[in-house]
Each structure stands twice: as structure tokens, then as C-alpha cells.
Design a protein around this nucleic acid. Structure first.
Lengths: 153, 153
DNA sequence: GGTATATCATTTGTACACGAACGAATTCCG
DNA sequence: CGGAATTCGTTCGTGTACAAATGATATACC
């Protein structure tokens, strides 16, 4: 029936039966994410990836409002609030009211936060390297290009 | 200084400053996952991806124990329990004790669950297609291959 | 046969993640 | 100017995720 082989890139053999969960992007994406999380936790134990992302982005862009920071690291208002709350308790970030816009809450690194994130950046590179280790450098470059395309829609 | 161009695949320009969060695999992986989740929610509103995964896998393999099912879809015991609990309330799965091993809890689709998952499978294909839409078919094939390599370590 | 070990499921605690609803402050614009 | 629409932050509710502790049952093996 079906012409086997010959660049059959789009698998349109769509019977009700042959849906294989393990081959769906979403499922594999989730598993890849799990593996990355595990590698991250092994290397950077006392900070979660979202917490690290918040600190790293603050280090990149300096003081910003809470929601703005959330947008920069793809977290909605409710999520970023929880992350900042926990970082604040640990004194890695400090909050201040915005001078002219009383709705805004400015977030910035404390000295302690800056020291911490600068110490962690090398480890974060290792996390990236470990995650990409199953791929050759060439594959890794391709993968990152396609992944970005996918993420940005 | 640095030789620009010429297949410089591994970017080893590792100064303390030029860590860009937005280019790290983990971060982009998370964003890609977010986009997929949004597409899934738009197409399959009344079931979450983990719930769908559980039903789809049950449909694939038939009755299994709760933990076994969790392993098949990469969820730990605590997580799969929550998912199954919610599916049970909605009568999409049914639980039964294992005959010879009283520790085990057998999970299976109800008739309603089977009807539901079979109706959803075509939509799930659309979710996959939409997610991969930013890529050409060739790119999508490459991406999935590399992603699987990454996910499996 | 009985103990050491392993497996299955549950519970607890912490941390995202997001939709929806809300109040306060600001901006837009007629 | 002044009301409408937006933006900013908070809260609530639901649903993953995973580590760690626990109890019940099975299996291994001496």
C-alpha cells in the first residue's frame, strides 16, 4: 500500500491505531525538559531554574519592574510573584517602589544576589553543555536553531 | 581577536558577561514547551497534556498498574496518582485491585474513556502538526530526531 | 521458614504555571 | 477635564512535578 522509503518526511499513515505517544513532539519535549531539570538540579542544587532565570536576567538588564522581569523570562504575573517572593526571603533580590508609577514594584539584585549569580554562571554553562552532550557540536547548533524557531512560533 | 565565521560551532567566548539566558537550551526548551501547551489547550480544552498522555498510553497498552503507567509516560508515583485520581472522578478510567499482588492498583479505560481518547486522537495529531508548523517537514524530522537523542540522554 | 531487600502506593511539603477575578493607579482620548 | 481602557500587582483555584517518609506486600536467598 504505502510507498515505503523515498523521503517520506511527512508521515501521513494516519490510522486510528498508530498514534504513538512517544513520538509526539509534546511528549518528547516534556521528557527533554525533565532531563534538563535533573542536570540543573545536580549542578545547581539550591536554586531552581526559574529562580536562576530571574537572577540571571536581572544581572543582564539591571533593575526592572516585577511584571517586566516576568515578561523577559516568559512567566506570567502570578508565577513571577512567587519566584520573587522566595528570592526576597533569601535576600538575593530587593524590592523598591517606583518613584513616578505607584503601581510598579522595582526588583533588583542585592550584593549577595549579584555575588551568587556571578558564581553560578560558570555552572550554568556546564548545565547547558551537559544537556547538549548527547549531540555533536554541529547537531547541537542545528538543534538550537530549530528549537528557537519552534519556541518563537 | 576572535576569528569570526568559519564554522565556529562551539562558542567558547566564555567571558563572565556574555551569558545570554535566551540562548541556553534549558530556557528555550521551556519556552517551546509553553508554546506547545498553549496549542494543546486551544485544541483539547478539557483535558491536560498529562491526562491525555495517560489515556493515550492506556489505549496503547491496555490495563496496567498505576506506577507502571507512570513509568511509561515519565511520571513519578506521586504525580501519576494525582492524574489518575482526576481521571477517575471523571469516570474516564476505572481502578481494580490486582488479583495476585495486593500492592498493585490496576488502571484501565472505561468505555467512556475509550470513546473519549479515540475521539481526541485526531485532534492530538493536529496539536503535533501545529506545534511543528514553524519548521519545514525536513526540519521537523531532523528536530524530532535530535530532540529524542537529547531526551534519552 | 524467616529475614533482608525491593516494589507499590500514599501522603506531605515545596515550587512552578496559568486562568480568572480583583483593586489601584495610569494613560488614552474625546 | 473626565470617563474608558490599560497596566501593574495580588489573590484564588487547579494541576502538574518531584523529594522524602511511610506502610503494606512481595521476592530473594540463606
Amino acid at each position: 500500500m504505502s510507498v515505503s522509503g523515498k523521503l517520506e518526511l511527512v508521515e501521513e499513515g494516519r490510522k486510528a491505531e498508530d498514534y504513538r505517544l512517544d513520538e509526539q513532539v509534546g511528549f518528547v519535549l516534556r521528557k527533554a525538559n525533565q532531563r534538563h531539570l535533573a542536570i540543573f538540579a545536580a549542578r545547581i542544587g539550591d536554586l531552581t531554574p526559574p529562580q536562576f532565570a530571574a537572577l540571571a536576567k536581572l544581572h543582564e538588564v539591571g533593575e526592572t519592574s516585577q511584571n517586566q522581569l516576568g515578561q523577559l523570562i516568559a512567566m506570567d504575573a502570578a508565577t513571577i510573584k512567587g519566584v520573587i517572593d522566595r528570592l526576597k526571603v533569601r535576600r538575593l533580590v530587593a524590592l523598591a517602589p517606583h518613584a513616578r508609577d505607584r503601581r510598579r514594584l522595582l526588583v533588583n539584585l542585592t550584593d549577595e544576589g549579584r555575588t551568587a549569580i556571578e558564581a553560578l554562571l560558570p555552572l550554568a554553562r556546564d548545565v547547558t553543555d551537559d544537556t547538549l552532550a548527547p549531540l555533536t557540536p554541529r547537531e547541537a547548533a542545528t538543534f538550537l536553531r530549530l528549537l528557537s524557531k519552534l519556541a518563537d512560533g
